[in-house]
Simulated scan of single mutants.
Amino acid sequence: MANISLQDVKALRERLGTGMVDTKNALVEADGDMDKAVEILRLKGAKGNAKRADRSTSEGLVAATANGTTATMIELACETDFVAKGDKFVALSEKVLDAVSAAGAASVEEAVAAPAGNQTVGDLINDEAAILGEKIELRRVASVTGEHFAIYLHKTSKDLPPQVGVVLGYSGDDADTARSVAQHISFANPEYLAREDVPAEAVEAERKIVTEISKNEGKPEAALPKIVEGRVSAYFKQVALLEQDYAKDNKVSVGKVLSDAGVTVSGFARFKVGA
């Protein structure tokens, strides 16, 4: 039987982030062979992954990067904020983002199948989940195209990594305005770029709702069409970015601000951890 030193245990723990008892037991089982101990710990963790499959992942982070004419954003989720703010989880998110961006993946399905070194992104995540002892999943992936990009990552707590992320693709030369609009998106949370992008069925459903509300309020029949259209317009101001009141000056629309700055938005994405 090999003599397992505290230095061996410490070295392996720092390498993998595993617990003291599990690390020592793995080294004993491997007769001091570091590589074999790593394999034992990963196999043990993989079994734990299966048991954690039904657990919820309400914590995590968002990360984004631009590569040429495409920007990629991911939401990597875990179970606790303790893991979310750890160096190993943050490092994992950087590896995942790099791999997803390099592969040009635009969906979770494409992303988890993307190569990450000599394995896939999905395998990389599973391996790290086994070591960290929590369920970890790539919850969302977004791909935005454009000539330029404004990337805004917001921390809701100084102790945690970014919890809200926005990627804005645009053409034009006013980077400051583009970034300001990305910040606006982070809290205004528009669903679409322009009113023309809102699905017709969604508009019709809203029109039926506000018509019923207006009738129940006893509005005059003759005035109903104008009242309903006014309320539908208010709906557009809620869901369409270009129609929204600009956060820094609610007397003008985001569309007007962008137009005055010579900036044209090609697309955007917004993620909030757990939302």
Rank of each mutant, 00 (worst) to 15 (best):
275 A>N: 11
144 V>Q: 05
53 A>Y: 04
73 M>R: 04
249 D>Y: 07
275 A>Y: 01
248 K>S: 11
11 A>L: 13
211 T>R: 06
158 K>G: 03
145 T>W: 02
48 G>K: 11
25 N>S: 02
179 R>I: 07
38 V>P: 08
255 G>Y: 09
85 K>M: 01
166 V>K: 12
157 S>P: 00
58 S>A: 14
123 D>H: 02
243 E>A: 07
118 N>D: 15
170 Y>C: 06
113 A>N: 12
81 D>S: 01
48 G>S: 11
193 L>D: 08
260 D>E: 13
15 R>W: 00
36 K>Q: 14
21 V>F: 08
165 G>K: 00
125 I>W: 05
156 T>L: 15
222 A>G: 06
17 G>F: 01
262 G>M: 09
151 I>S: 11
82 F>I: 08
95 K>Q: 15
4 I>R: 12
218 G>D: 06
205 A>P: 03
64 A>Q: 09
99 A>N: 09
93 S>M: 00
210 V>I: 08
138 L>A: 08
42 R>H: 02
4 I>S: 01
75 E>L: 08
98 D>Q: 14
110 E>N: 12
33 D>W: 01
140 R>C: 05
131 I>Y: 06
123 D>G: 10
4 I>F: 09
140 R>F: 03
209 I>Q: 10
69 T>N: 14
222 A>C: 05
18 T>A: 13
237 K>I: 10
234 A>V: 00
195 R>A: 02
85 K>E: 07
174 D>N: 14
132 L>H: 04
207 R>K: 15
167 V>A: 10
159 D>K: 13
152 Y>T: 01
160 L>V: 04
44 K>V: 04
2 A>M: 02
38 V>I: 14
255 G>L: 06
24 K>R: 15
135 K>P: 07
103 A>N: 08
18 T>P: 05
168 L>H: 10
66 A>W: 01
242 L>W: 00
15 R>E: 15
25 N>V: 05
46 A>P: 03
51 K>L: 11
6 L>V: 11
245 D>G: 07
153 L>N: 12
185 I>N: 13
167 V>M: 13
261 A>W: 12
45 G>E: 02
7 Q>L: 06
43 L>K: 14
174 D>S: 03
205 A>K: 15
261 A>S: 11
7 Q>Y: 10
256 K>L: 07
195 R>I: 03
127 D>W: 01
121 V>Q: 09
210 V>T: 08
29 E>Y: 00
95 K>H: 10
242 L>S: 01
256 K>Q: 15
241 L>V: 00
68 G>E: 08
108 V>S: 13
251 K>F: 03
147 E>K: 08
137 E>G: 07
38 V>K: 10
248 K>P: 00
93 S>K: 12
